[in-house]
Design a protein around this nucleic acid. Structure first.
Lengths: 146, 146
DNA sequence: CTTGACCTTCCCATCATGGGAACCCCCATC
DNA sequence: GATGGGGGTTCCCATGATGGGAAGGTCAAG
């Protein structure tokens, strides 16, 4: 089948299929005489693997490792698990960071009148004239995420 | 003060200060005869505003709006609040998405032996040969996030 | 033979950020 | 006065994953 069909069947856009091929995540597709890429059902399966991995938030580099493990019939499941758990930790960390931001911001918004008057604790907090700006130990703002 | 000091005092890197100026988020800094940018305490305050807003996950475009509101002494706090709450919603949505990914992945990892044997539900789920497509009861892939 | 849907490659844009080159400036020290 | 170091300046490039679009080739149906 051609790239459009492979895209529809795998959930990966044609654009991304070409990209994945260009960076060597997936092998070069077959070609027709006219130069069109062709995909076998096995190719589509690989693409679906990639699609699901992306859906779980794995990066391209992580998928490279996952694909290698998938193909390695003698892999140790421990290797897969380690990779997965590292990713879980990263996802959780990022999620916590976002939650912390939203929590802090919602806290401020809750205190904002939300009316026609200008007084607003959100703006006040951002402007924050009342804090220490001495480089050494900057005040711990929820915003100071690294 | 010069850009390095302003950076240290605000928490925004010199590189980013120049960038913010280049995109017009902040006004052009003063210049010494030699062409060095100079910053007043008020400039630094603006930079700290930006730093905190970034820390709360606001985009540059959102900061543009926030800065405008900050400067507008006749603003309606409702405008600030709306902006903040929209952002809170976006943050929460993103966080939920990440949590859902990590939850799904952890679920799989929990079922993985993590030993020397190759059998691994994580890989199995990604490869997923026993796929849906047959209308009946397609497996709910956590990965199928839209 | 034409039309339209599809394919090809190539370039550009996103968003916020950092790296680095090549060059200039200022101050302190010898 | 010369020199060195630690700034500053501009400009270009890279990131990660993705989409948009142009210019042109191909194929099947009408």
């Amino acid at each position: 089948m051609k790239i459009g069909e492979a895209a529809a069947a795998s959930g990966v856009s044609a654009k991304m299929i070409r990209y994945y091929e260009s960076i060597g995540l997936i092998g070069p597709a077959g070609r027709t005489d006219a130069g069109y890429r062709t995909y076998t059902p096995a190719d589509v399966q690989t693409l679906r693997f990639v699609h699901r991995a992306r859906g779980l938030g794995f990066s391209v580099e992580q998928m490279r490792a996952l694909l290698a493990l998938w193909r390695d019939k003698r892999r140790a499941s421990a290797d897969v698990k380690r990779l997965a758990l590292e990713h879980v930790a990263a996802l959780e960390a990022k999620a916590r960071e976002l939650v912390e931001m939203s929590r802090a911001l919602r806290h401020l918004a809750d205190r904002c009148g939300g009316d026609a008057r200008p007084d607003c604790p959100i703006i006040d907090e951002l402007a924050d004239t009342h804090d220490a700006a001495d480089g050494a130990a900057p005040a711990r703002h929820a915003a100071d995420v690294t």
